[in-house]
Design a protein around this nucleic acid. Structure first.
Ligand SMILES: [Mn+2]
Ligand SMILES: [Mn+2]
Ligand SMILES: [Zn+2]
Ligand SMILES: [Zn+2]
Lengths: 137, 137
DNA sequence: ACGAATTCTAGAATAATTCTAATCTGAGAA
DNA sequence: TTCTCAGATTAGAATTATTCTAGAATTCGT
């Protein structure tokens, strides 16, 4: 018997929310399970709402996505005008962007070697370097 | 006497539109002059509309920005959710993004040395690599 | 279970952008 | 020059993404 049945998966997700200081409500648990129970994902408020359909409102999806982001469980990404993506992979990494389909795909940090960067402007501090590799339309 | 008076500046902007296959209408000339008559700029539909105020509608600003972009006179940039930037610098280059103010600043191409990149996914072609250097909030 | 704080929800509101349909105009033809 | 009309402009409506509001429901420490 394995230790990754649906009970322990639920428990993991619940603990994850607790650890982040978020109340594990029914709605948040449902969303967190969709987001975190499998591999890394890049979702849209709309796409996540569609997956969770029937059990919660769109406003709650936005609330949860922002709450999760503030607590460091998600990262918000803007590559396309008009709609934000939320990334379950919060570790430093980069992205392929498929212009044809609007999909994102992770690029491991070490796949992109940056051998020199400019100095930050006076009084500023670099908080993160993001590389987007666009794939032709 | 120099050759960069306002007459020749108007002429240059007009020729630029002609060369791009765009009719040099009054509205486009006004916008092109704001965009191209001085150094490189990063504008928003709203910010450009405010500069041109009174002489054209916001819909026209959007039309012009998209027309210019299609003809290669501008580049559209999405770094922030909710609003697009348009960049008058269409050569390959990167950006500093000031999280505090929402402003962009050009980073010359050669200031960022990328010594290795991942292969494009099967059947895909890299069309451009964009680096955004975020400056702490 | 009680109560305070937090969260959820639907719908209204807002903000950015796109669409529509009427009107206008630049620029080549005559 | 004047004529023509494809293409451009316009204001406002429409659409889309997102945020706000205010009341109802839930969570959780006690
Ligand atoms: Mn705004
Ligand atoms: Mn949509
Ligand atoms: Zn990612
Ligand atoms: Zn730029």
């Amino acid at each position: 018997m394995r230790s990754s049945g649906s009970l322990s998966r639920d428990t993991n997700v619940l603990n994850r929310l607790r650890a982040a200081g978020l109340r594990p409500t029914r709605q948040r648990l449902a969303l967190a399970k969709l987001l975190f129970a499998h591999g890394p994902r890049h979702v849209t408020a709309e796409s996540l709402f569609n997956e969770a359909r029937g059990n919660l409102s769109l406003a709650t999806v936005y609330n949860a996505l922002h709450d999760f982001t503030e607590k460091g469980l998600l990262r918000e990404i803007s590559i396309k005008s008009g709609q934000s993506y939320f990334d379950t992979n919060t570790t430093a990494h980069h992205h392929f962007y498929f212009e044809k389909t609007g999909k994102l795909q992770d690029v491991p940090l070490e796949s992109v070697q940056i051998s020199s960067l400019p100095e930050a402007p006076m009084g500023e501090t670099i908080s993160r370097v993001e590389v987007v590799i666009r794939l032709a339309r």
